[in-house]
Amino acid sequence: MSERTRLRWKCRRGMLELDLLFGDFLDSGYEHLDAGERQSFDHLLDYPDAVLLEWLMGRIQPTDKDVVQLVDKIRSAASD
C-alpha cells in the first residue's frame, strides 16, 4: 500500500497534463506491469516535467530506451 501511495505522490507534477496521464496509469495500467517495468516507471518519474511532456505528447521519442515502451503504455491508458 505505501509503495503505491509513494508513487501516487510522485505522480503529483507541476502540469495538469502529467497529473492526468500518470494518475490514470497508476489506476489502470500499473498493476499489469512486471517488476522490471515497475522499476522503470519509478525511474521515469525522476525526469523533469518538461521532458516528460514532450515524450508523453508523442512529440519526441524518449532517449532512454528503458522507458520507450512504458511511455506508449501510458499514452494508451489515458482515459477519454
Partner: peptide, 12 residues
Amino acid sequence: SKVFPTRSHTVA
C-alpha cells in the same frame, strides 16, 4: 514543499 521543488506549477 509538498512536492519535489522542480515539480511546482511554475514549470507549466
